[in-house]
Every structure is written in structure tokens, then in C-alpha cells.
Amino acid sequence: MEAFLVSALAVTVGEIGDKTQLLALLLAARYKKPAPIILGILVATLANHALAGLIGSWVACHIPADWLRWGLGLSFIAIAAWTLKPDEMDDEGIQDGHYGVFLLTCVTFFLAEMGDKTQLATVALSAKYEALTSVIAGTTLGMLIADVPAVFLGKVASPNFPFKLVRWIAAGVFAVLGGLVLAGVGDRFL
């Protein structure tokens, strides 16, 4: 349960203002079809985070514990710094295509998450915990908590949302996680 909750929290706060959240806003504003967009986000996130989780599990089995602790701690601190950089996305890269809103959402979300901070957080969390299913479920829930409201709100709320403040809070969460792991305290609390 702990792996699930930490994963959900880390990805929820890390996703605020992220390019995939902006992508959700963009798709919702353009297509006004929330059901296929939300389902596309769910499928793409499950696939992407399952891949990331498997990589994290492999790393945990093949990297010595001290190296893993330092790698995880430093990766969380790097994610904290990355979180402070706002993502930007314009809608010129998204084409309607012939495959419908669901498939368009699946493909664009899967690709947008490749190498993204939430995917890297999933790798790190999966390496930290021996609970692959809980981590994937938690990170996927975190993505949905952050992105589903963006789908329903579209462009209406985005200009007034305090993305900068939330980015600083998310950076703080990742920095604390990194510090706890580096100090060895993370083994007890994370």
C-alpha cells in the first residue's frame, strides 16, 4: 500500500504543468470528447509506466544496493530540478489523423511520456519498491488525478491555475524523497 500511495502522490504533483497535462488540455479543447481522451490517457499511461516499472525492477535486481541508493537519491533530486522547468507544447504537432481521438490520445501520450520526469520517477519508484503492480497502479492513478481534470476543464481553467506554485511544491516533494533516500532514511519511510 505504501508503494502505491507514494507513487500516486509523486506522479500527481510531478504531473502538474507537465507537457502531458498540457496535451490533455489541448486535446480536450480541440475535440471536446472527454471519454476517448481519458481512456487514451489511461491506456497510454499503463503501457508506458509498465515499461518503466519493468526497467526499474530489472535495475533493482542487477545493481548493487549502495549504487542503487545513490542513483535513486540523485535521480529524485534531478527530477526535482527538472520539475521547476515549465513544459511548453503547441498544437501544431498534433494532427487529427484517420484513427480517431482515442488512438490519437494513446499514441501522443505514450510518446510524450517517453523520457519524461514522471516516467523516470516510475523507474526510480519501481527500483525502490518490490511492488511492481502497486507502483504502476499508483503512478497511473497519479497521472489520471492530474490529467482528467485538465480534460474536463480544457482551456477555461488553465490561464488561472497556479502552475508555478505547484511546480515548486512538486520539486520540493522530489527533493525530499531524494534526500531521504541518500540519507538512508528512505529505506524506513519510502
Rank of each mutant, 00 (worst) to 15 (best):
G14V: 00
G14L: 02
G14R: 00
E15G: 05
D18F: 13
D18H: 14
D18Q: 15
K19L: 15
T20F: 11
Q21W: 03
L22D: 14
L23I: 09
A24P: 01
A24I: 05
L26P: 00
L27A: 00
L27C: 01
A28D: 11
A28I: 00
A29F: 06
A29D: 09
A29T: 14
A29R: 10
Y31T: 00
K32C: 13
K32Y: 08
K33Q: 13
A35G: 14
A35T: 05
P36W: 10
I37L: 06
I37G: 02
I38M: 11
I38H: 02
L39A: 11
L42Y: 12
L42A: 12
V43S: 13
V43T: 03
T45S: 08
L46C: 14
A47L: 11
H49Q: 07
H49N: 06
A50E: 08
L51N: 03
L51S: 10
A52N: 04
L54A: 15
I55P: 00
G56R: 06
G56I: 06
G56A: 08
V59D: 01
A60V: 06
H62G: 12
I63R: 03
I63H: 09
D66M: 15
W67T: 08
R69W: 10
W70T: 10
W70D: 15
G71L: 09
G71P: 05
L72F: 02
G73A: 03
L74I: 14
S75L: 15
S75A: 13
F76W: 04
F76N: 01
